[in-house]
C-alpha cells in the first residue's frame, strides 16, 4: 500500500517535477501528507523519503524542524494564540487564559471531542490587529474574549466550514503549471550557459 491516495500521488509527482532537485519537494510533500492524514505519521515520512530520495531520518530531521508539522493527531481546529510582543502588549496572556478556561484544556492540549487543539503561537504577521489568533492558520483579528467565545461556538456548530477547512489543508487552491506553458525544471548540472534572452543581449 502506498501512503498517498492516487490523486495525491499524482500531485506529488507534479510537485517534485517543479524543482531542479527532488529533495526540494520535501516540505511541500509533507504538507500534502498532513492535508491527507491530518498529521505526519511515520509512514508519511517514509513515503516522502522514498519520493525525494532521502532516508526517513533525513525527512524527519527536516519535518521536526518546522512547527506546522504535527506528529500525533491534533484537533480538527488548531487554535494558535499569538503571544509575541504586539499581542502581549494588548492582552494576549489574558486571551490565552480565557481560551484555556473556555476550552477546558491547557495550551498544547486537545479537547476531549477532538475538535480543538490550543497552542501558544508566535508572531503571526498581523501585529497591527493584535491580539490575534489563527484557526488552522486562518487569521482572526483583534480578538476579544467575547469574539473568541463566538468563534469557538461557530466552529463547533459548523458555521465556518466554508471558510476554514480541517487541520492540514492550507491553500484550497493549488498552483498548476500547464505543461505547454512551463519552462520546466532542469538539474543545475545540465545548464552550462546563460539563458537565451541574456545570451543574446549580454549579461549584466
Amino acid at each position: 500500500m502506498r501512503f498517498f491516495t492516487s490523486e495525491n500521488q499524482r500531485l506529488a509527482t507534479e510537485i517534485i517535477g517543479r524543482y531542479p532537485k527532488a529533495r526540494s519537494a520535501t516540505i511541500p510533500l509533507l504538507h500534502l501528507a498532513q492535508e491527507q492524514h491530518g498529521w505526519i505519521s511515520d509512514d508519511a515520512m517514509i513515503e516522502v523519503g522514498r519520493l525525494v530520495d532521502a532516508t526517513p531520518a533525513e525527512v524527519k530531521g527536516t519535518a521536526t524542524f518546522y512547527e506546522m508539522f504535527k506528529f500525533a493527531p491534533v484537533g480538527k481546529y488548531l487554535i494558535n494564540i499569538c503571544g509575541t510582543m504586539s499581542c502581549q502588549l494588548l492582552g494576549a496572556d489574558h486571551l490565552m487564559h480565557h481560551a484555556e478556561t473556555k476550552l477546558g484544556v491547557v495550551a498544547g492540549g486537545t479537547t476531549e471531542d477532538g475538535l480543538f487543539t490550543l497552542e501558544h503561537a508566535e508572531c503571526q504577521a498581523a501585529c497591527t490587529e493584535a491580539p490575534t489568533l489563527q484557526v488552522n492558520y486562518r487569521h482572526q483579528y483583534r480578538v476579544t474574549t467575547e469574539s473568541f467565545d463566538q468563534l469557538v461556538d461557530d466552529l463547533a456548530a459548523g458555521n465556518l466550514d466554508g471558510e476554514i477547512p480541517p487541520h492540514g489543508t492550507l491553500g484550497r487552491v493549488r498552483q498548476a503549471i500547464p505543461a505547454d506553458k512551463s519552462v520546466g525544471a532542469v538539474p543545475p548540472t545540465e545548464v552550462d550557459g546563460p539563458p537565451v534572452w541574456l545570451a543574446v543581449e549580454g549579461a549584466s
Binding site: F69, C123, Q175
Partner: peptide, 17 residues
C-alpha cells in the same frame, strides 16, 4: 511573446522564523 522564459514556483514553508 518574447524570448524571455521563466517559471515561478510557489513554495510554502512550514513554520520556522
Amino acid at each position: 511573446g518574447s524570448n524571455f522564459s521563466v517559471d515561478i514556483v510557489l513554495h510554502w514553508g512550514a513554520g520556522a522564523y
